[in-house]
Design a binder for these strands. Structure first.
Lengths: 358, 358
DNA sequence: TGGTCAAATGGTAGCGTTATCATTTTCGCG
DNA sequence: CGCGAAAATGATAACGCTACCATTTGACCA
């Protein structure tokens, strides 16, 4: 009766019970020793440690997390499958999730579904926290709905520079500033700008950087050099067409993302302009499109996968803190960007307007 | 008494029991559905699947591996981050991996690393099986290296129509055939073709379909209407330039993927041709690029995420079978494709050459 | 229509660990 | 020397799932 119990154990790995029996203590005591808890007498601890070493025992991670309720599920809610952005984002967060031993649940949000429905779905699905890539991170309704059900969230690449929401981002303003400086340093003084979708706060930061750089260089901001875009290729076509149709068009155009920069290149070509000979074009984000088209785009590299990795890490820490009832201020990480020079920029072919420089 | 049961559960995680209760079946049946076992009636399976989706349930890896099912880790090895393809691929496989309760480990292969090094890495990482998206599925060296270490693999979107390797794909030949028929039905008789990278066997299938459709319509295959491409935008530019420079250029160009079709549109515009007025252009794959550019591309939709989903499922079943020492013939799934008509095709503007029709 | 057998489904008992309490031991101090 | 409190240890019941077998259902044939 003691021998023929129908154990399902495949592997002869020693269990905590084996250790307990050999050491002459209860499994609970062994558990305490393993977890380094205080309430164990040194003598007992030594005995248990010795037995563990002798049996070459290793605790089962599976049983541990089952019993301890340590499993965490974090959701990644995306809405605008901006292809190249998403894939890099996914790779980064997956990697970090696996490292942190957390489950990553990827969820798509169609614009038709109500915010409430998605949040309900997340809640019922035992999601412990959410990562919000753009443009969701700027959707106030979503942020508030999550806050309402007390679900921790991390915004990625938002333009909101601070606040109650944890965030991981780059300094969009500074990056745009640097790119504009770069164009000015090349000799451009007539620089166009294509704005991003106003539903993302990063758009505003980028515009600010552009304006600031012009101002610092003593160049005037010309309103008709600034066109509204929406981060899509299509919107870039319209914006570029508008700017290039001006009587005195700019010699460089800085688009708020790579898609619109690519569209600008297309319009330039259609107008018989050489890029970068007749027109310098640069983008933002360094998505794969930047190196897909010809000429390859000079752009700002956002460390997308590093950002998503960081987002997972931040979220995990928030969840751990919350479990221990600690309340911490929401983290706010700013990662480094980088100006990547490729083939789409050059000094202006024509000399700057007489009087354009002192 | 019913209310105050001392549950240790922190969060209201849906468990297999919740699903079972909601679906009106036993937990065992749910377990069977999750694991894709055979002995479940389709109606029951559907009901359970629906409940799983509704509750957003995902099995607990911990409990599962504790209960005896070993933990499975499957690798997704990608090399050419074809952005839009990858992200859709990831979303599908992630979703299915979560449903099947297996870990998905995403691994990138730089072309510099030796095949041996990657395979070693997988082995040491205790990866039980691998999914190979294109172009890796056609890299004979990789396939053989995996076979050498006895690691199960599933090829996705390969052109190999059969063999020792499990595969999930569409019928590339038939799809290309249909697209070509479509162009012929529109009235085109001078149809150009841009080939895909010869390192992918699907390229050959697509060419075959094109040739077969022309043949069946009694149209001659003109060698100079066929240009070599490599699936990149850049290669598409060259190919399209070549074809459109002919004395009597085609009225339609069928590119082997969307990137090259987009490049063709760019060249056409540069040459002052209207698409589709002067030139019909169509692509293949229906990646996001197809709807990014203007005009949006008529193309063949590959159910990418369904394919990656299926690949995970197939791999899991292979691993299960192998665990039970069963040896089954490698599965070979062919999923349905679809011809998506958008704005890039139209009947030819000029009448077909005299005599071109009876 | 009833009987047979395989397919489909359900019940039960763990898998190895920890949370929670109950119990025992130890030790300080009057 | 004994009392009470704190420290140390133990017993028990989950945690969520699947293996194994028992039971029910449905299909097919006589």
């Amino acid at each position: 009766m003691s021998d023929s119990r129908p154990s399902r154990r495949q592997r002869n790995a020693p269990t905590i019970n084996d250790v307990a029996r050999h050491a002459g203590v209860s499994p609970m005591t062994v558990s305490r020793v393993i977890n380094g808890e205080q309430a164990v007498r040194p003598a007992t601890r030594a005995k248990v440690d010795a037995t563990i070493a002798a049996l070459n025992y290793a605790p089962s991670a599976a049983a541990r997390s089952l019993a301890g309720g340590e499993e965490m599920r974090i959701g990644l809610l995306y809405s605008n499958p901006s292809a190249s952005y998403l894939s890099e984002f996914l790779v980064g967060s997956l990697d970090q999730a696996s490292r942190s031993g957390v489950h990553l649940v990827v969820e798509k949000w169609d614009e038709q579904t109500s915010v409430k429905a998605v949040v309900d779905h997340l809640t019922r699905g035992r999601i412990d926290g959410v990562i919000l890539p753009p443009p969701l991170c700027d959707l106030e309704e979503m942020v508030q709905a999550l806050a309402a059900v007390n679900m921790p969230a991390v915004a990625v690449a938002t333009g909101r520079s601070a606040g109650d929401l944890a965030a991981v981002r780059i300094d969009d303003r500074q990056a745009a500033y640097e790119m504009t400086r770069h164009l000015i340093a090349l000799g451009h003084s007539r620089i166009g700008f294509i704005k991003g979708n106003p539903n993302q706060s990063a758009s505003t930061r980028r515009l600010e950087g552009y304006v600031a750089a012009l101002g610092d260089a003593g160049l005037a901001v010309q309103d008709d050099y600034i066109a509204q875009g929406y981060f899509t290729y299509r919107s870039g076509l319209d914006a570029a067409e508008h700017i290039l149709a001006l009587a005195e068009p700019p010699t460089a155009i800085f688009a708020s993302n790579d898609d619109m920069a690519a569209a600008t290149v297309a319009i330039a070509h259609r107008n018989g302009l050489d890029v970068p000979g007749d027109l310098t074009v640069c983008g933002f984000d360094d998505t794969s499109l930047a190196t897909t088209i010809w000429p390859e785009l000079t752009t700002i590299r956002q460390p997308i996968s590093a950002m998503s990795r960081a987002a997972v890490e931040v979220l995990v820490q928030m969840l751990r803190a919350r479990r221990s009832k600690l309340e911490a201020a929401p983290a706010h990480l700013v990662l480094d960007h980088q100006l990547i020079r490729r083939q789409s920029d050059a000094p202006p072919r024509v000399r700057p307007k007489a009087g354009g420089r002192k």
